[in-house]
Design a protein around this nucleic acid. Structure first.
Lengths: 318, 318
DNA sequence: TTGTAGGCGTTATCAT
DNA sequence: ATGATAACGCCTACAA
């Protein structure tokens, strides 16, 4: 007998030896069926090609592995309609699920978290459900970026919106508040997307807008935009300043290195695991936690072109 | 009854309706136990933080999803000793496994592929086993990089070796052959690693070596090295040329953009799935396939410093 | 065509 | 302390 019980230690040893010789291992499937647990949890994200979700996944996966759980992963390839059925299907094969579903409606989410419990949520606003939430404060996170541009003299700003989602709504809210506090700022919002290509495709609109400071939805969009601007002969940050969001691992190595808001993906994943695991063990999970992104000033932002060249100079260099 | 049989279509419809109302779903666990298949496959890689393995994973995951299979993922966090037990454990929960285990010995691998069949291998040399192999020809892939440096006038080259692995051995072999064909090339090899930090740590040794052309084990190492060189006041490619390997998604956006050998991660994953799926269906898999990396000339390489400035100029620009 | 028994590989419970 | 048995939820084969 493999577990611990009230067995003659003598025979227990013999059994273990025999098991080793035949290299016998209890079938996890059969155990799962009878025990009602699979030692597996699922992770669902919109797009695993996005480095931010990757780092969340790794944080989650490593944390879960330390507690003896395996990770079942899937992405909805940015097809929001597939998210709910996918989540349900995944959940059937495991003991719990971590959901990164920024575009799911509150109603769907509430239903799903009830049906699929235990569930941990990443980057969602509180919606009245039971599931623990580990989140990023995008609203608070984007204001320092806007303020940073403002300090460089930028007054005509453009926000490249992502797909409708929790985080996009939060960022728009943060920017709206910023504009309230700074009435001299003229902010336009243009729908873009969440990928490098989306950023690349926004070049014309950005140039036509006359904005000098562009806040991209995320680092990918910023990268695509900068790349496109350079192809169009515009210099960043000389002609235009661009900020990203997320601080993906390569944001510091791109050219110019990206001024961005740093989102702690690994921590998000780890804290999601902590809470999901508590639920799995029948404990009450830690309180919801929200991380405030850190402003990461790099080289993609600089003084507004019309400003005197030497103004803010010391702030710009280094 | 949910499957198709010789049932009265009338009652079949009624059953389905009832199932829908009660939102009943057959338990995948129980089905798995009795059917002997889980509709899940595992993917094991050394380090999921590496963008190359990520793209392999995504290619594999999406291809498998199209055929109704889910993906169980894990990495050995660069701890080679854990690879075999991890693979065995993963395999118990699923129907097959795709192994990215470049450091496993041939003996271990042969044993593992027998025990864990069906198995598909990524980036391994043929070792006499049965498992289908989808690979990258690193030996052929690195020669164009060396030749590219050579054409720029570089004669003192340095190879930053990764961890001992199939691909590292292949690259060393490729370079050795290149040197045979070009006796005027002086090639040194220095052990480095596979991460950005490893590249960063190699700065002093690289500068001390007097080499003008550095071939890094992969893009990550190249990135770290370039970043360190710039901090040390050296200019790339003016003072030193650096090449990477893999062509990770951001290689074109870093500064300077990276000259590298492009490895088709997504295709590797997809072809691995094709073969594993064939095995799962009892068919004979396609033949082993090897991809030849494409030389991707970008901005991190240029003429050797001592060469006349205008030499190779046209080749350098653009 | 439809119902029923048996078994997949475990674990847990209950007599012994 | 130990051995037998039911049950987990499903599928398949066989009998009705």
């Amino acid at each position: 007998m493999n577990g611990n019980a009230t067995v003659d230690p003598d025979i227990a040893v013999r059994v273990r030896e025999a098991a080793r010789e035949l290299d016998y291992t209890a079938s996890p499937l059969a155990r799962s069926l009878v025990l009602g647990r699979t030692q597996t949890v699922a992770f669902l994200a919109p797009d695993l090609a996005n480095p931010t979700f990757q780092s969340i996944m790794r944080g989650l996966g490593h944390a879960a592995a330390r507690d003896g759980y395996r990770l079942l992963v899937s992405d909805s390839v940015e097809d929001a309609t597939e998210e709910v059925p996918l989540a349900r299907e995944l959940r059937q094969r495991c003991d719990g699920i971590v959901l990164c579903a920024p575009r799911m409606s509150d109603a769907e989410l509430q239903q799903v978290t009830r049906d699929l419990a235990p569930v941990a949520l990443i980057n969602r606003d509180h919606h009245g459900g039971e599931a623990p939430i580990v989140a990023t404060d995008h609203e608070a996170g984007i204001r320092p970026l806007a303020a940073h541009l403002y300090a460089f003299g930028h007054r005509r700003m453009l926000y490249l919106a992502g797909n409708p989602s929790t985080s996009d709504a939060q960022r728009q809210r943060g920017l709206a508040r910023f504009v309230q506090d700074h009435p001299d700022v003229e902010l336009r919002t243009v729908k873009s997307g969440v990928t490098i290509d989306a950023g690349h495709a926004a070049v014309e609109e950005v140039l036509a807008s006359g904005a000098t400071g562009v806040l991209a939805y995320n680092d990918l969009v910023a990268l695509g935009l900068i790349s496109g601007l350079q192809e169009a002969g515009a210099s960043v940050p000389r002609d235009l300043s661009v900020t990203g969001f997320d601080d993906i691992p390569f944001a510091r190595y791109v050219s110019p290195s990206l001024t961005t808001g740093s989102v702690p993906g690994r921590e998000l994943g780890e804290h999601a695991w902590l809470r999901l695991n508590a639920l799995l063990q029948g404990n009450v999970p830690d309180l919801d936690v929200t991380f405030r992104p850190r402003l990461e000033v790099r080289a993609s932002t600089g003084p507004v072109p019309s400003a005197r060249v030497d103004e803010h100079r010391s702030e710009h260099d280094r």
